[in-house]
Deep mutational scan, measured.
Amino acid sequence: LLPSFEIGAWTEDDVYCWVQQLVRKGDSSAEMSVYASLFKENNITGKRLLLLEEEDLKDMGIVSKGHIIHFKSAIEKLTHDYIN
């Protein structure tokens, strides 16, 4: 489970856990499981996660359009939940 809904306070480890949970919950393929490490390697914290754009995801090595859409949708939901 994630430490809190205060996404802005999430550490790199918290984001890593979130990506792992996202991959487990989704209908995503096994190749998506490597993405948790990509987020950690790129020092993505909660604040940075909320700022990620499609180009950032591509720069991190996420090239599948479907996977990018999956992440963007999940990040938008997080942003919405965080604001409300």
Rank of each mutant, 00 (worst) to 15 (best):
L1A: 12
L1Q: 15
P3T: 14
P3V: 05
S4R: 09
F5L: 11
F5M: 15
G8K: 09
G8M: 13
G8T: 14
A9M: 12
A9W: 07
W10H: 03
W10S: 04
W10E: 02
T11F: 01
T11E: 12
D13V: 02
D13R: 03
D13I: 00
D14S: 02
D14M: 00
V15W: 03
Y16T: 05
C17S: 13
W18V: 00
W18C: 00
V19C: 03
V19Q: 07
Q21I: 04
Q21E: 13
Q21T: 10
L22F: 09
L22Y: 05
R24W: 15
R24L: 14
R24N: 14
K25G: 11
K25N: 12
G26M: 11
G26Q: 11
D27K: 14
S29V: 11
A30R: 08
A30V: 11
A30S: 12
A30E: 15
A30T: 12
E31K: 07
E31I: 06
E31N: 08
S33C: 07
V34F: 15
Y35L: 04
Y35W: 06
A36Q: 03
A36V: 05
S37N: 13
K40F: 03
E41M: 05
N42H: 15
I44L: 00
T45E: 05
G46T: 05
R48L: 04
L49F: 04
L49V: 04
L52T: 01
L52G: 04
L52K: 00
E53A: 08
E53Q: 15
E55T: 09
E55H: 09
D56A: 03
D56S: 03
D56K: 05
L57F: 11
D59N: 12
G61D: 03
I62C: 03
I62T: 01
V63I: 10
S64W: 05
S64H: 15
H70K: 08
F71N: 02
S73W: 06
I75D: 01
I75F: 04
E76Y: 08
L78Y: 04
T79W: 08
T79R: 15
T79I: 12
D81V: 08
D81S: 09
D81L: 08
Y82I: 07
Y82T: 12
I83P: 13
I83G: 13
I83S: 12
N84D: 13
N84W: 09
